[in-house]
């Protein structure tokens, strides 16, 4: 089944004001840069964005925040972004902070047809407030519900025309689960290849989870914390 769309414009068709988007990546690693740039151009407003982080001021999802396109962020860690802080403290931006493993599992569950699950993470803390608690094997757990999105936008290293995806190194992170949880999943890839070129043994995300795929025009791949050692 051919999932290829011509370009980012075609890939993002149908994203409208007020929709919920999942956006893959961890920090600036493995984020769909081309799609984010296109969302800025489109000017779509009142978005709910589910993404582990919120980018930095001038890159990643930070670009959508600059344009005040985001109504609500659902993330686990948002500490690298001054504009985010300003909007949150002024009440312009709603923020829902979720433990990282719970966020990952809620996306996975959303894509896997599991409406809710119990996890020990957050028991006894303020994030457990109002949530059902049950004891399993002598240990308390809290009920967490699945997440889905109108569109999931993920970034892969390689993809084929069937929508099968391969990720590189730690750029995989949230991308596979978000691909599962989108009603429509858009994959932007560094390299788009014909079906049959990817070894079926080494595909990370099967194309069944992907509705649209395109090759990104350029990838800046900005590094957030460049850390090196000297050759000794």
């Amino acid at each position: 089944m051919n999932k290829v769309v011509k370009n980012v414009e075609e890939a993002l068709k149908g994203i409208e004001d007020g929709m919920t988007l999942m956006v893959g990546g961890f920090g600036l690693c493995g984020i769909p840069e081309n799609s984010i740039a296109r969302l800025v151009e489109m000017g779509t407003k009142n978005l709910t964005c589910i993404s582990n982080n919120a980018g930095v001021d001038d890159f990643g999802l930070g670009l959508l925040l600059q344009g005040k396109q985001v109504k609500k962020m659902i993330s686990s860690y948002v500490g690298e972004n001054a504009e985010f802080e300003r909007q949150m403290l002024s009440g312009e931006l709603e923020v829902d902070l979720i433990p990282q493993g719970t966020l990952a599992e809620r996306c996975r569950a959303g894509g896997a047809g599991i409406p809710a699950f119990f996890t020990p993470a957050g028991y006894g803390t303020e994030i457990a407030e109002g949530k059902e608690v049950r004891v399993f094997n002598g240990k308390p757990h809290i009920l967490e519900e699945a997440l889905t999105a109108d569109f999931a936008i993920v970034k892969a290293w390689k993809g084929d025309t069937e929508g099968n995806l391969v990720f590189k190194a730690t750029a995989r992170n949230f991308n596979p689960m978000m691909a599962m949880a989108g009603k429509i999943t858009i994959a932007e890839v560094e390299e788009l290849v014909p079906a049959g070129e990817l070894d079926p043994n080494f595909i990370h995300t099967p194309g069944i989870f992907v509705q649209r795929i395109f090759q990104g025009e350029k990838f800046e791949k900005r590094i957030e914390q460049r850390t090196t050692r000297k050759k000794g």
Binding site: F26, G27, L28, C29, G30, N52, E80, Q100, G101, L103, A104, E105, C107, R108, W157, F167, K168, A169, T170, A171, R172, N173, F174, N175, P176, M177, H204, K221, R222, I223, E224, Q225, R226, T227, T228, R229, K230, K231
Partner: peptide, 30 residues
């Protein structure tokens, strides 16, 4: 990594560039 060998796709949870040892494995967040 050594200077000049940083890979934007290879970071730790502190978002620092790192390297992978022999026998390392990558996986998703779930």
């Amino acid at each position: 990594p050594f200077e000049g060998e940083e890979d934007a796709d290879l970071i730790n949870a502190g978002k620092q560039t790192i390297t992978a040892r022999k026998g390392a494995v990558f996986f998703d967040s779930a």
